[in-house]
């Protein structure tokens, strides 16, 4: 994380000296440690409920890779979603964009252009739909919720239209091999997730684009009056989300060696939930990529925990819902105690 600078030193009498650990910049670090704690707890629960599986080292290793692989596509999509939410918006259409991009990339016509044509198509469709979202929101002045809700319905409709509601099998071995390839024993998909997360972290924390995202989401009026092109940036944020959906579509298509209009169903909810429990403020202006990644890992570990215990997805969904509520409650509590702290150390 970004806490590499020397701790702030109080230079005035009466100013409270705070260690970086308690300072406001370390807040995301502490939150992420909390999520690591949750992950550890989930693993402990797994080990306690299925001790015979956890006794087998190679099973554990495989299981970890399975969890990571399952987290890969949704993780990539969550990175895009995190940017949109930090920028003060929401993208309900990510699942539908994935489906449209996947279906479009696997039509017989597209497949005739080979793997490169398929990847290009998926990404172009993702970015294109994202651009439409962004233009509707910033120049058409639609509320993000409404614009992307409409897109969610429309994009899935178009995907069903294109595919004729059929499952489209990918005959391209390059695409299909992405999911089964391992490098140094680790699935390629996990490398893709790692690359997207790293790129997302750099983009958010080290570039002007990231700085604008925080400013636009934190206080759009202040950003506008400071001379930032809020509208253009908003368009770019949704395009970025679309780009991530395009990448995610290829990853999912490769895993299933096919695409269909119903794929990536309800991914928007998983991505939003992961971003939120990772500490992204739903009202914008604050959030971290690493937190979002941990959010995704928590969810895929829960899914895995239920799978190894042969429990139903119904129970799993109930637990997921509970975790989202608990995470947001904790977030509010943290935020309140933090502002209290601020008002106490306020020097005036």
């Amino acid at each position: 994380m970004s806490v590499t600078e020397a701790p702030p030193v109080a230079k005035h009498p009466g100013e409270t000296k705070t260690s970086w650990w308690k300072g406001d910049r370390s807040e995301p670090v502490r939150r992420n440690l909390g999520l690591v704690g949750v992950l550890v707890a989930l693993v402990v629960i797994g080990a306690v409920t299925r001790p015979e599986l956890y006794g087998d080292a190679s099973w554990v290793q495989n299981n970890v890779l399975t969890i990571l692989q399952q987290a890969s596509a949704i993780g990539v999509i969550t990175v895009g979603m995190t940017f949109v939410i930090i920028g003060g918006g929401i993208d309900l259409s990510v699942g539908a964009i994935v489906a449209l991009a996947g279906v479009w990339a696997t039509t017989l016509a597209t497949q005739s252009y080979g793997a490169g044509g398929m990847i290009f198509t998926a990404i172009a469709v993702g970015v294109g739909v994202g651009l439409v979202n962004g233009l509707l929101i910033s120049y058409g002045r639609l509320v993000p919720f409404i614009a992307t809700l409409a897109m969610m319905v429309a994009a899935r409709g178009l995907a069903a239209q294109i595919s004729g509601k059929q499952t489209q099998v990918s005959a391209n071995s390059v695409i299909n091999d992405i999911a089964s390839t391992r490098v140094l024993g680790i699935p390629l998909l996990v490398y893709i997730l790692a690359a997207v997360v790293a790129a997302g972290w750099v983009l958010l924390n080290r570039t002007t684009f990231g700085r604008r995202t925080v400013a636009v989401g934190g206080n759009p009026e202040a950003a506008r009056l400071a001379g930032i092109n809020v509208r253009r940036h908003t368009v770019l944020l949704y395009a970025l989300s679309g780009l991530c959906c395009g990448i995610g579509a290829i990853m999912l298509t490769s895993q299933a060696t096919s695409a269909q209009a119903a794929m990536a169903n309800l991914y928007e909810l998983d991505a939003i939930a992961a971003a939120i429990i990772g500490g992204t403020l739903l009202s914008g202006g604050r959030g971290t990529i690493i937190g979002a990644l941990f959010g995704v890992l928590v969810f895929s570990t829960i899914t895995n925990l239920f799978a190894i215990n042969n429990l139903s997805t119904e129970v799993q969904n109930m637990v997921k819902g509970g975790i989202i509520v608990a995470a947001v409650l904790i977030q509010q509590f943290r935020y309140k105690s933090l502002t209290n702290l601020f008002s106490r150390v306020k020097t005036g």
Partner: peptide, 28 residues
């Protein structure tokens, strides 16, 4: 409501109009 990012540090608020000027190749 019109000028500040209240949760952000002072230096980021001060450079809100100029940070692109210090950046190199899009990196702040």
């Amino acid at each position: 409501s019109q000028a500040l990012l209240l949760g952000e540090p002072i230096h980021r608020n001060m450079t809100l109009s100029t940070f692109t000027g210090y950046a190199r190749g899009g990196f702040t």
